[in-house]
Simulated assay, not measured.
Amino acid sequence: MTGRAWQRFLGHHAAVASVFLLALIAASALAAPLIAAALGHDPFTPDLFKRFEAASPAHPLGTDELGRDLLLRLLYGARVSLAVGLVAALVSAVIGTAVGLTAAWFGGAVDAALMRLADGLIALPSLPLLIVLAAVDPARLGLPRGAMWFDLARIVLIIAVFGWVKVARIARASALSILRRDYARAAVALGASGGRVLWRHVAPNLAAHVTVASTQTVGAVILLESVLSFLGLGIQPPLPSWGNMLASAQELVFAAPMAAVWPGMMIFLTVVATNFIGDGLADALDPRADIVKA
């Protein structure tokens, strides 16, 4: 970003606060093994003698129904939820941008085919389809079952298959508008290749739109992962995610309400923070802002 863009972003106080919040969550998640060593607990090993303990110096947020430390499980769950959200949003953004630019540049039958595919995916009920795809037994496909890396990759792939459509439509609409402008037409008339025109003249002007859509996708992906894990079709225990922590706590709302409050609060704060960051980036990366000031 340019200096003026940074100034506009820093002037968006909610976005700046959201960046610090997500940075704190991410740093704490990365430091989870060190925090676990300092507290002297294993977040994966049950201890039935410590079930439902209240918050204390030994267990800052208390323990769950199996006696595991809630704070440590929240931090390890943050690793999973944030990784799934960021990777799935990035894959969706790359696919969507590529599809949108391809449709805008070639037009005609290519544009029609790609956009009808996008329309078809939009028309499908995504959540039921995600549930059906997530419920497929990987062992029947000759794939490993129970491997943590496979659960993560499967969720990312399933969400990315449906997540690229929004970015593709935004990228296509913006690219069509940009390609009609004089500087883009001049570049084509001077013999610039399609790749150069798209990379030098179209892509920079798509940054604001794609970035905003991608940041909002992060929050949506975290919610989808939480829903799938809540239904038992996402990240499988003992690997914690905020979604399966909520699923484990759904029958303990009255016995141990904080076991459900903490992961729910983390999901809420993360989704709201990503939306604020998206708003801040939209203002910062808007090229019209520099024109207006000039």
Rank of each mutant, 00 (worst) to 15 (best):
A284M: 08
A123Q: 10
S241Q: 00
E251P: 13
W199N: 00
T45C: 01
T274W: 15
V271N: 03
R79V: 09
P257W: 09
A58F: 12
V227H: 11
L190T: 11
F49W: 15
L130D: 04
G194P: 02
G96K: 02
R79F: 00
R180N: 07
R116F: 09
V167I: 15
L233W: 10
V227Y: 10
V132R: 11
A175G: 06
I277T: 02
A112H: 12
G67K: 02
A186S: 15
G264H: 07
P238L: 08
V156Q: 07
V16F: 08
K50A: 15
P237S: 05
R181V: 05
F9R: 12
A259W: 00
K50D: 09
A171C: 13
T274V: 15
R140K: 10
R8Y: 04
K166T: 14
G108P: 06
A5C: 04
M148G: 13
T211E: 05
S214I: 12
V202S: 04
A27I: 10
K50P: 01
P60A: 02
A109R: 14
P138H: 08
R145Q: 09
V132D: 05
V84L: 10
T102W: 07
I95Q: 08
L70A: 15
V156I: 13
L223S: 08
E65Y: 11
